[in-house]
Design a protein around this nucleic acid. Sequence first.
DNA 1: TGTACATCAGTGAACGCGCGTTCACTGATGTAC
DNA 2: TGTACATCAGTGAACGCGCGTTCACTGATGTAC
Lengths: 190, 190
Amino acid sequence: MTAERAAYHHGDLPRAVLTAALDVIATEGPAALSLRGLARRAGVSHAAPAHHFGDRAGLLTAIATEGYGLLSATFGETRNLRDLGVRYVRFAIAHPAHFQVMFRPELLRPDDPELLAARERTRSRLRVAVAGYADDPAVGFMAAWSMAHGFASLLLSHNLDGLLDGQDPEEAFRALTGDMFRPAGDSATG
Amino acid sequence: MTAERAAYHHGDLPRAVLTAALDVIATEGPAALSLRGLARRAGVSHAAPAHHFGDRAGLLTAIATEGYGLLSATFGETRNLRDLGVRYVRFAIAHPAHFQVMFRPELLRPDDPELLAARERTRSRLRVAVAGYADDPAVGFMAAWSMAHGFASLLLSHNLDGLLDGQDPEEAFRALTGDMFRPAGDSATG
DNA sequence: TGTACATCAGTGAACGCGCGTTCACTGATGTAC
DNA sequence: TGTACATCAGTGAACGCGCGTTCACTGATGTAC
């Protein structure tokens, strides 16, 4: 996707390491990640990944930054709050490794400027959409985020496995918000 | 709390190991947990913890089971959905280590009967409370759980640090639900 | 009250493993002239 | 077009560390008689 570097000895090693990392994270979680293991997967010597990312935190910061870009792309041009929620869930399903890393600040370089900028760009999308729905923008922001994030987290961590029984997760989330998540000013009855 | 065993050589080692584990998990996360590290903290030889818990999964399953008991206790006798949400958040803050472990099934023994029973007891509390609020009980259950779980998760993982600015988290959550989380049949306007 | 024995919590040495990090190196690419 | 040199991606041996697991053991507690 964002390959900026031509192939040297082994093609695009940074991308190869990132891809291997995303695979490990998606299947075994961020805790299972080791630079040596990634080098093995990418077919290079164990010290090679450090050339590009420094350490684990550097690698994960790159993943989180990329994740915010992918989330913004998944948002598209939608300004509708409910759609944004559905797309948040869609992003978590499509990019589970990015999702798992983005919200674990203790794994990241906390002050990385690219990360902070990408995060702010994404957040502002939600802030704009929530403006028309809540009396207090900060409260509305946290409410919408909590709802979508809670559902996506529980889904990815297999806590909804017995509850969805075959239902499409995006549609289930849409039903959730339809039932209980209404614009302020709406007077919906059951 | 649930000490069932009198002191042998070193007092109540199972409890001492659990306490040490809760401390490590709360401050460094479940990934930082090692049986050798816990033995060191508890002041016993490195092989001692395995006597009581077998392995990491056994230890974490014990913590998760205890966690469901503590969550049920935090729920008290409340049948009010909004209060249950607030208490879910309260539990996450009071027992962050338990909370982090309970919803990570890949760290646990999946079929442990005590764990499954404790979990079911807790879930049924929420199921009863949600019955009056949603048209579809399963949808209402997931909606309420997503909201409370999302807020608690984001809070504990320090993703709300810049957004709450000093506000009490329980009160913030109450505001969230007041704004956007209404009983079906209620016709609240903004 | 006293002895013999079973039980079981906890010890400590030993093992093999994968990890991050260091460091001198190799070899391909890119640039100056 | 050709040579010399700088740069930098990637190598591979070596290091020390903490881990889980095994296993023969010690020593305190509890019970049978």
